[in-house]
Amino acid sequence: MANKAFSIEDFNLWYGTDQALYQINLDIPKHEITAVIGPSGCGKSTLLKTLNRMTETIPSVQTSGSIEYDGEDIFAKKKMVEELRTRVGMVFQKPNPFPKSIFENVAYGPKIHGIKKKQVLNEVVEKSLKGAAIWDEVHDRLNQNAFGLSGGQQQRVCIARCLAIEPDVILMDEPTSALDPISTLKIEELIKELKKDYTIIIVTHNMQQAARISDNTVFMLNGEMVEFSDTDQLFSNPKDKRTEDYITGRFG
């Protein structure tokens, strides 16, 4: 499989002494949308955050097994974690803009990576906001604080912020769970658009959402990966009994 983004092998993760992920084996394809579903506490967010090593902000985390991105071990000593994170961006559950202007929010990524030219920044900000389908709503108030926007707009600014450094992969951790249905719809359409240029991995507890937007779906339960297949197939014809129980609403 030449076009795989991530290749996860025998991966385990512990928070202190509590094991959160058990023997995960998974190949995530490039330029497709992969959804990760499962009941809360099943480890789906942990798996997602491992992919750009955000779990390392918690000191007690320990791991075993390997994860390769683009054929390279993401835990390799000489690899700088910052570099991985510029390639693998992240959008969070709650919209979390910085307490700065919309412009500064989007320009943040390029700036911290040493891009200073005003003209370049202007172009990047415009391009990113357009890419996140929010340019028309905010282009006349780029200097206003991002906190003044609605939740859905904030989340699209956060997506624009992520696009600004042109990552290859965008990790999305339940990006619509804090939003109203209309904003959710907009974000979902945006995600489908982004698929053309980005590999997207999205964690969601909303099965309909996974079915609507994703190409592949991973079902996780109690820290284990139960099933991974084409989305249509997983929802119409699950192989595992537990997957069937979950998608038919028997638990979760």
């Binding site: 750009n52 910052e82 991985l84 994170r85 510029t86 979390n96 943040y108 700036k111 911290i112 956060c158």
Partner: peptide, 21 residues
């Protein structure tokens, strides 16, 4: 809030960049 720290670190900002900016 830790969310905005995470946002910064998640973009590849270093610890000090996150603190300073």
């Amino acid at each position: 809030p830790s969310e905005i720290r995470e946002a910064s670190i998640g973009m590849g900002a270093t610890k000090w960049q996150t603190i300073w900016r």
